[in-house]
Design a protein around this nucleic acid. Sequence first.
DNA 1: CTGCCTGTGTGTGTTTGCGAACATACTTAT
DNA 2: ATAAGTATGTTCGCAAACACACACAGGCAG
Lengths: 232, 232
Amino acid sequence: MLMKSRAPIANSLLAALSHAEFQRILVDLTPVTLKFGEVLYEPGDAINYVYFPNDALISLLTQVDQNSALEVGMVGREGMAGIALALDMGTTPFRTIVQGGGTAFRMEHAPFRNALARSLPLQHAVHLYLYALLTQIAQTAACNRFHVVEARLARWLLMTRDRACSNHFQLTHEFLAHMLGVRRAGVTKAAYELKNRQLINYSRGHIEIIDAGGLEAAACSCYEVGKTKLIS
Amino acid sequence: MLMKSRAPIANSLLAALSHAEFQRILVDLTPVTLKFGEVLYEPGDAINYVYFPNDALISLLTQVDQNSALEVGMVGREGMAGIALALDMGTTPFRTIVQGGGTAFRMEHAPFRNALARSLPLQHAVHLYLYALLTQIAQTAACNRFHVVEARLARWLLMTRDRACSNHFQLTHEFLAHMLGVRRAGVTKAAYELKNRQLINYSRGHIEIIDAGGLEAAACSCYEVGKTKLIS
DNA sequence: CTGCCTGTGTGTGTTTGCGAACATACTTAT
DNA sequence: ATAAGTATGTTCGCAAACACACACAGGCAG
């Protein structure tokens, strides 16, 4: 299935602004290219910039025990990174990394706070996104507790697809293992099973979704729950 | 017997207000007694009231698959229930239940929204709490993924203690199992082990923390991480 | 006193996932 | 061409937790 091409301003938070409001903050928006693996914040870091992804994809990770981390949230064009600034906090609790390279708008922290104070529609959009993020994190928590690796992998791939607007991404089993908080061998086993069922295909850091419908059936219900929240 | 002006305000959000600000919203605060097991909201319910616990203790649960639920957050005197209202959302994503009976202040949704629009200090307090809640939920997600039942049980008891300000609560293994998302037998085994080590004592729905220090050692590091956030 | 309900202790067999390897491939650099 | 590095396939033994089930004990109501 081919997805249709993207509009220049794909980010939902920015798209929610009226033309006039958008023009006012445009001067402070810098288009940037985010590269895979780039670390935007470490936990506790000061938030110097916020990011509004267009086709980039960002992961929020919670670190535990110095060695292992777990993805708790995924930020695509429906949201933003650095949202703690909207809660009057200058630091972020999450290790925040670029999971899928692409473009985003970047804004310095002071202009963002000013824009937020000035623009009720922006406040509103940010509030709605915060609610969605809260819900997503909670859903992910429950999902990680109750569902098997294969279902979680399927969900993760579908969530990535929805945000990247592509059936095709560049990710190794190793990376997926870190996101899902499981062993690399566990991902290989689950991915192999999904490949056997003609739902996905992959090879050397290259993953493609072949049958999205079938993958949804293989995923846990958490995907459906989260999907409805995404459409905002 | 209403002694509003003289009642001790244990709730941190309310305590953060100046005397003048507090007087202004006092008229809309109703002291209520919350009973164990009471359901404040089901997921998707409209938020008619928000609650500011004093010594009551509230659990936020995410439901999955119709039968199982998982506690993702705990609300005591440091926070409030119904915070989605502060995000312009009229409904809550969480099943919200009373985990420990006690007193709280209740406020109807319209006065709360008005108070929030009017009072910057209240906004600020709510924002900080939202940040803490977001962090807590994410930490709980990672904890549920990586740590064994015994450590999670220890953490849960300590968190409850901090919020209830008591070493002694009324809870069955069955209830704990629902909160932690594990089997009742799993809780019995973990609790038995903690009892053997003289850290806790329990009998027929009665739990007491004997050695809080030892229990901290038995808990995972997630407790320490969350504890620092509580003090705000 | 008796019976019933609730709460806790325990056991068996199964599943999931872990840690730690090792075995293949494919890709790139020398 | 050879070597080194990276990505995937597979295995073994083990620990945690599961589902299901049953036993027993405290406490309350009749």
